[in-house]
Structure formats: C-alpha cells, structure tokens
Write a protein that binds this DNA or RNA. Structure first.
Length: 318
DNA sequence: GTCTCATGGACAT
DNA sequence: TGTCCCTGAGACG
C-alpha cells in the first residue's frame, strides 16, 4: 500500500480540489451505498491524514474514513483545478511514480477546456466523490466507512505518533514505545500503535540507514538511538511527501550502477535535479541476493510477522 | 487463461 | 501464528 507519505499527499490533494465544495457521494459498486447516502450532498470541510488513515470531514459532523490497505487506490479527474492531481495508491509497481491524470480521459470534452462531468465509473468503484469541478474514485480499499467525530477520535487514539505530524514530544513517545518492548525493532516499526504510517519499504530502509539490526529487541535500543531513528523516519517520509516516491538512498548512489560515487558526482546529480532510477532508490528493500551498496555483503531476506524483511547482515549488526 | 505477488490489517486460534 | 479479505499487473503457459 501507499505508506504514510502517500496518504498525506492524498489528504492535501482532497483539500486542494474539494474543500468548501458540495459533493455528491455515491457507491457505484454498491458496497458502500448506505455510508455514501449519509454524506451525499454535504460540503467537505477538511481532509486530514494520520498514518495510513484518511479522514474527510463533512459539514454534517460526519467523516469519511478510508484505509487503502494493500490494494486500495484513488483516481482523480476534473477541470484545471485538478491539473496537478494524480492517482494515488496500490496497485502500482513498487517505487513507481504516481500516474497523473490525462485530460482527455477525465471528463474534458473534445474541446479540451470545459469539464463535462465525471466519466462512467469503470470497474468496482467503492465510492465516488463528485463536485462541479471534478471527481475522485476509490477502489479496493480495506476500510471505507462513514463515522462520527467520536469514532474518529477512537481511531486516532489507537494510533501511535505520525512522523509526518511530528508534534512536540512525539520522538520521546516513540522512544518510550520502543523501549518498553522485547519485540524486534523491525516488527515494532510496522506496528501502527508504536508509530503510524511506516510500511514495509520505509521500515527496511530506515533500519539500514541507521545501521540497526532488525532483530534487535526494541528495549535494547538506547534512548538516543530510538530518537535518531525517529528523526530519520521523519526525514525520509517528508522527502516521500515532496517527491511522491519513496527514495531513501542519497545522491551518491544514484548513478548507473547504484554504487557509491564521488561527492562531486553526487553534487552533479543533485544539481541536475534528477531522481534515481527505480533500481537505485533503495538500499535493501527488494534487493535480496544483491550486494549491499555500502559493503558488498549479500542482502538477506526473511519473513517477519508475515511480511518480508530485507537487511544487510554486515552493516546492520548489533 | 491461470497463478502469484504486492507499500495492510482484522480476527480467530 | 495462521487465515481471510481487498484489486490489478506481470509472469507464465
């Protein structure tokens, strides 16, 4: 699924195109008809994200709560206010950029200017939001429900601190969450009660970046290590929000073969404004069997609580 | 066409 | 720890 950075981008996009607008809310697929009816005709007040959860607040004190899960995705289309909007969510290839709307297929008439209304829904559209300026379709989400404000608070209360919110005291809360557990730190990073928004890509990558042994019990991290880990998650996830991609390698690794280059070459890569090729965007994620970019040791893979974990056994020793 | 896999999580056991 | 649900794309035949 899109990790927390994608959901944050989604919230921003909903805010940009739909805030203050009256929305028609429907469930072309039919599975969300009752929930959609509660929101239909109401105005969107705000869109917010916490971790991987998206909350759309309507003017009747009800909230559309969406969790994309592994397969969920939103697609958008509409007039010029939608020009920068993109489809966000799975399924896409890992590391692939978001796909941007093409005007011809998104409700423009043949003249290319006036918005002619949403196209007929294609496939299993769980919910469609439509305003006078455009539309958004949701497919395949794990959770799509209409909830009250109290229920929203309940959902938020079950989530740990979000690195993309990064309130004062969150680093300490995260450190305390880690240090009270004997579970491997790699499992704790995926636990949304410990930290909200980290998924399988970020967890593997930040553990490598901090050179932490994924199997180290959370309680074995020092407070300083835990806080540095938090700060690195904050940093890479904010980059993800800006880039619309998960890029965890530094420019020194962006050249052709993904091996470390000279500082001059890295500077040149940064100045040229290029992004790494998909193959060079990560240190260890999905690189099992390949040599570590830093030390050359073969990157390993293992199953941990049902998800695949990638790490370098040399760089990440405890 | 069929199979497998994927950035997740709830629930049962 | 295992099972199930959700959807679509790519590999394979």
């Amino acid at each position: 699924m899109p990790e927390g950075h994608s959901v944050r981008r989604l919230a921003r996009q909903f805010g940009d195109v739909f805030t203050g607008r009256q929305l028609s809310v429907s469930s072309p697929q039919g599975r969300f008809s009752a929930g959609a009816a509660l929101l239909d005709g109401h105005t969107l007040l705000a869109a917010e994200a916490h971790g991987k959860h998206l909350f759309l607040h309507f003017d009747n004190a009800l909230v559309l709560h969406v969790h994309l899960g592994l397969y969920g995705a939103w697609s958008f289309g509409g007039d010029s206010t939608f020009a920068g909007s993109s489809s966000i969510g799975a399924p896409r290839r890992v590391g692939e950029e978001e796909t941007f709307a093409e005007a011809d297929e998104d409700g423009y008439d043949d003249g290319g200017n006036a918005y002619a209304g949403p196209p007929p829904p294609v496939g299993a559209v769980r919910v469609r939001l439509a305003s006078s300026n455009g539309w958004a379709d949701l497919r395949g989400a794990t959770t799509c429900e209409t909830v009250t404000l109290a229920e929203t608070d309940g959902i938020l209360a079950r989530l740990g601190p979000d690195p993309l919110v990064n309130r004062r005291g969150d680093a300490g809360r995260f450190a305390a969450n880690l240090q009270s557990r004997k579970t491997p730190v790699a499992a704790l990073l995926m636990d949304q009660k410990i930290i909200a928004g980290v998924g399988n890509v970020y967890r593997a990558e930040v553990l490598f970046r901090r050179r932490l042994d994924p199997w180290l019990p959370g309680g074995d991290l020092t407070d300083g290590e835990a806080r540095k880990l938090w700060r690195d998650v904050v940093s890479v996830m904010n980059d993800g929000v800006a880039d619309g991609r998960i890029i965890t390698t530094t420019p020194r690794y962006w050249s052709g073969n993904g091996k470390r280059t000279t500082p001059a070459a890295a500077l040149s890569a940064m100045k040229s404004g290029t992004f790494p090729a998909r193959d060079n965007a990560h240190f260890v994620y999905k690189r099992d069997g390949l040599p570590c970019r830093v030390c050359g040791t073969t990157v390993l893979i293992a199953e941990l609580v049902g998800r695949k974990l990638y790490w370098c056994p040399y760089c990440q020793q405890s």
